[in-house]
Write a protein that binds this DNA or RNA. Sequence first.
DNA 1: CTGCATTATGAATCCGAAT
DNA 2: TATTCGGATTCATAATGCA
Lengths: 370, 370
Amino acid sequence: MKRTGEAAHPPHQLPLNQILAGDCIEVMRSLPEASVDLIFADPPYNLQLRGELHRPDNSKVDAVDDHWDQFEGFAAYDRFTRDWLAAARRILKPNGAIWVIGSYHNIFRVGAALQDAGFWVLNDVVWRKANPMPNFRGKRLTNAHETLIWASKAEASRYTFNYEALKALNDGVQMRSDWVIPLCTGHERLKDEAGDKAHPTQKPEALLHRVLVATTNPGDVVLDPFFGTGTTGAVAKMLGRDFIGIEREEAYRRAAAERIARVRKFDTAGLAVTGSKRAEPRVPFGTVVERGMLRPGEVLMSANERHTARVRADGTLVAPDVSGSIHQVGAALEGAPSCNGWTYWHFKREGRMIPIDILRQQIRAEMDPH
Amino acid sequence: MKRTGEAAHPPHQLPLNQILAGDCIEVMRSLPEASVDLIFADPPYNLQLRGELHRPDNSKVDAVDDHWDQFEGFAAYDRFTRDWLAAARRILKPNGAIWVIGSYHNIFRVGAALQDAGFWVLNDVVWRKANPMPNFRGKRLTNAHETLIWASKAEASRYTFNYEALKALNDGVQMRSDWVIPLCTGHERLKDEAGDKAHPTQKPEALLHRVLVATTNPGDVVLDPFFGTGTTGAVAKMLGRDFIGIEREEAYRRAAAERIARVRKFDTAGLAVTGSKRAEPRVPFGTVVERGMLRPGEVLMSANERHTARVRADGTLVAPDVSGSIHQVGAALEGAPSCNGWTYWHFKREGRMIPIDILRQQIRAEMDPH
DNA sequence: CTGCATTATGAATCCGAAT
DNA sequence: TATTCGGATTCATAATGCA
């Protein structure tokens, strides 16, 4: 293995703001040790997809079936992970840090390998997708998030964390470990000559924006060993950080280079989504049941007590001839086209009729205390 | 290792709705194999912080000294994890599943061990805490979530997932992998004689409610090897599931037993949840023809009226170039891999297009007239 | 050009009973 | 055990098409 003295790129001439071609492990081994401030890595997820999947409308899901995501098995994936992490760790400065993003297919193996390699986990961060792809067959939960791990090079590292900047990004409230950010779509999504997506897993700039604002300072060197179409480089350039990208596929490198050339420093495109305020959060009636505010089996009634229905464990109601949501059952019993179940249904406490909307207000108060 | 025939608890006399004392690995080894439907596990999160790990032989894992070696610590934790997962896997039915909850300290190691043991990850779920403890020193992000892993015993397992019930819980929209649930506080939080919290990591009942409604049916057996103060048992009892708890600490067992004794089971009516259409009895299309609801020779058409076909006496359809079942003909005409003929085909009555599924519903109503 | 309706699509480990 | 085939299954957002 090459050491600093014989490195292809001595520290004083790091290949800044370039996209290096080749296997990331080999390329990282050619770089000088302890020379970069942050690594952001979006490695292959090893999805292990089997057959085709169709939507209910019979259209075919464009799955990630690229050769670079294929591994023999967990053992092969683990070897790959250990190797690139070791190479990454060597080039990281002592006070440097790393981010890795993944899904349940690979993130547990990556996280364990990080810990085994001596990295010190600072947070795991959940990217809650505002608009995930649904589960079309109804066989599992909608896979609505991905996980990022943020780790310093060692437990003793004095890592960078711009606490106040993140608090400001979050309307003055301490930033949490779950980030709501939409998928990368629309004009941000790079297209190839044929109009298809240039890369199957392009990450949103808003995600990288938050990562780089949180854990780097202007002038820092950010390395991305799985550069793809260069979201890390584009956001680094906007924010006045230097980047080093490594990418094997020529088509991705070319798309990334063109994209980054178009970026103007201090462009604030990535900021747009971070501060968005939501209207009052939607509260499913099922939440009232889960939290024990109403018991399954309990009787609800209309204000005039002419109609009653029983609560079930999944938050639906059953009346003698109809079952369904609080709204559906209310509408059916009244023979009305629609019904606001929150104000229609009541429960009795100490002889008094109380609308269930009271319970929703309690839950909303807990969800958003300021 | 004990086998079914010589098990301390043969299947017909599982120690249901009891809290078993002792090390969970030993106790699970004494239970019959393939005997429980679901395991919910909340294992110790981090051996460095608590030093309460014990080997299967009940010997205590050496506490780390001042110059503790991180790799030593993880290796011991990994051994412990593999051992209890192996014991858990043995007692799980072939179509059984497991949930494990953890934080970034341990969840990566647990997840990798699950995969290595042959479990098949179905989802990772984020418990987003509505009211997390802030990060007082401002050195990291507020740790505002924990991670649950839901995995079946094997890739081929036909696991339980009450899709429609969870959709109902979420106001009619498919349930996502991120769940917003408050911490366990207030009167739900068990206190000891001194008024302090009885257990440091008591989980909210709302979390278990959703887990059990999603992945068990009434009458299922749910085992919790790290029972603590018995949230799993309390919610299982409410929901009409049987539980088996295992707990080493006498104080926790006592608190859990008292707590569960106070729990009332929900009414049977409340335990029902919204069912799947797949569970409804199958109606052959031929029955529609036999009953004279459609006459042989009658013309059916797609919703957009682009395709038509004629009904034959045996309940098949004929179109110009294809004949077969309502599904086969629909799929062929649309060039689709599959087609639900019941919703695809329509007939005309008084100028209006009516889906043939209406006729199936009539037949089903006659079959099961409540 | 506006406004409304229709179509397209996103890191996906996505069926199961009967024969 | 392998094959067949009935038939169940989607949310948010952006782009495109049409009146």
